[in-house]
Amino acid sequence: MTSASSSTPSPPTPPTPPDVRLRLAEPTRYGRTARRIDGAWWPRSDDLTEELTGLLGVLPPAWGRIASVLVHGDTWPDCPEQMTVAGQPVHVGHDDSPTAPHTVCLIAPGRGRYDLLVVPPGTAEAEADRLMEGAVAGDA
């Protein structure tokens, strides 16, 4: 027989951020993908500050510290010029190229540039899964 559990309350669990919906392409043996798109990201809202904080917090350590992010102005019209993520400054700029309205570019000094397909937040799950799978398979 085991004794009854202690009545001492456990400390509260800190809130966890919403799951980041991200798929990354398989790296090559050199650590980089051999394609134009490095993965796909499906943010949960249009709040760029909140969404980028979550995204940058789950990227592979091999990508290094992301110092700059370029987003498309039509997709993210309300974006800060600078934000702090994990105590580090991150510059946010607009890239209004007509060829990349649904991408975000992440720049890590000394490591490289990483481009992610952005699936709009309101996309149906089946369509988002299809788009994300296509991006990591090299179909984007």
Rank of each mutant, 00 (worst) to 15 (best):
W41C: 10
H91K: 13
P11K: 14
R23T: 00
L70A: 07
L59I: 15
H91N: 08
A108P: 14
L48R: 12
A40H: 08
S68I: 09
V69A: 03
S3F: 05
D46R: 15
R21Y: 05
G110N: 12
D74M: 04
A124T: 01
A62M: 03
E133R: 13
R29M: 02
S10D: 09
S10N: 02
D115L: 12
T16S: 14
G31T: 00
L106E: 05
A67I: 10
L52N: 01
D96K: 13
P15L: 08
L56F: 15
S7M: 10
A128R: 14
I107K: 13
D95G: 11
H72G: 08
R113L: 00
T16Y: 10
V58M: 09
T33R: 15
P27R: 11
R65F: 10
P17M: 12
W63Y: 09
D129V: 04
A62I: 04
P43E: 09
V119F: 07
A34M: 05
L52D: 01
G57Q: 07
V85P: 01
T75N: 09
E50L: 00
H102V: 08
V20R: 07
S5K: 14
G73K: 02
S7N: 14
Q82V: 04
A137W: 10
P15R: 13
R21D: 03
W76C: 00
P61S: 13
A4C: 14
D139F: 07
G54N: 12
P89G: 01
P12C: 14
G138C: 05
I37G: 03
D129T: 09
S45T: 12
A137Y: 08
L48I: 04
A135N: 06
H91E: 07
A100R: 15
P101K: 03
V58N: 01
D129Y: 07
D19C: 05
G57M: 10
V85D: 03
A128N: 08
V92C: 02
R44H: 09
D19S: 08
A67V: 06
E81G: 06
T103A: 08
Q88L: 10
H91A: 13
R23C: 04
Q82P: 06
A62H: 13
P109V: 03
G112Q: 10
L70Y: 06
A108Q: 11
G93D: 01
